[in-house]
Amino acid sequence: MRIVLVANRKSGSGRTDGDRIRRLLADAGAEVETRAIDDLDDPLPTDTERVVVAGGDGSIGTAARAAHTAGVPLAVLATGTANDFAGALGLPTDLTQACRLAADPDARTEQREIGLANGRPFVNAAAAGLSAVASRLAKPHKARLGAFAYAVGAVRAGLTAPHVACRVLVDDEVVFDGDAWQVVVAVSGAFGGGSNIGGTRHDDDRLDVAVVPAGSRLALVRHGYHMRRGMLTQQEDVPHHRGHEIAVDVPRGTEFNVDGDLRTLDPARFALLPGRVRVVVPT
């Protein structure tokens, strides 16, 4: 098994030990070549059989696109803070077990979609409003609290953050125009250290978008509860739509939380990368 390893040492507050991961993959029988995440736009070696990414959710999209382009499976080692993508797929949290799975040539794979936010790949969700504020507030606490930092950030955002004016178009049709606490464009739908909008599919070649309209802060408690249970889109007061292309018009400078990374998208346009990537999953 010839593997290209992409290890983001900045993920998980520095917990990604590329040298140890390389040894574990080699012990599992793999031949490993290391590639920097910034170099994944360059073609992979022709004998590459698998791409392995070690890092947080923000690293996965870039590695997924590289694996998709090369026509090989992607294996994910959950060494970030939230690890929402790995959690949604039930991937091992123990690094030794995860490396064994990643290096197993007979491992099962599942087809997964890759989203594009203004052309940049993502695999979970891009959210404006409370999620972006919560991510910024969580950042100082991630080294100490781990994934729980997102819960702390979410509570503070729910108590203090303002709503955001947004206009949402799905395949050029306006589906929402007004103030919202949060708007989420979703691939897997996972975000925020264990939350999920729910209702997404990984085989329909469409993106999902869910909007939490502005209202009382007390109602946010209910919405937060349903996000933690993956049932947000089941709420009657939460518009939920699917489409090939989604546009979210928000005030200039509004930040989006894209797979855990804060980005300003002006304008914010979302689509799916044609085709899917095969992701290694447990049996």
Rank of each mutant, 00 (worst) to 15 (best):
Q182L: 15
Q182I: 04
V183R: 02
V183L: 04
V184C: 09
V184S: 04
V185T: 13
V185F: 02
V185W: 05
V185Q: 10
A186D: 11
A186C: 12
V187D: 03
V187W: 12
V187C: 13
S188M: 07
S188T: 15
S188L: 06
G189P: 04
G189L: 03
G189M: 02
A190N: 03
F191A: 02
F191G: 00
G192Y: 02
G193K: 03
G193V: 06
G193N: 12
G193A: 11
G193E: 13
G193I: 09
G194Q: 06
G194T: 05
G194V: 04
S195D: 01
S195R: 13
S195L: 05
S195Q: 12
S195A: 15
S195N: 08
S195H: 07
N196M: 10
N196P: 00
N196H: 15
N196D: 15
I197Y: 01
I197V: 15
I197K: 01
I197F: 01
I197C: 01
G198S: 10
G198H: 13
G198L: 10
G198F: 14
G199V: 08
G199E: 10
G199H: 03
G199N: 07
G199A: 08
G199P: 06
T200G: 08
T200K: 00
T200D: 10
H202V: 01
D203P: 01
D203A: 10
D203S: 13
D203Y: 00
D203F: 00
D204G: 10
D204M: 06
D204C: 09
D204T: 11
D204Y: 04
D205T: 05
D205K: 01
D205F: 00
R206K: 14
R206C: 15
R206Y: 00
R206H: 10
L207A: 14
L207V: 08
D208Y: 02
D208P: 07
D208T: 12
D208V: 03
V209F: 06
V209C: 09
V209E: 10
V209P: 03
A210S: 13
A210F: 12
V211H: 03
V211C: 08
V211Y: 06
V211N: 06
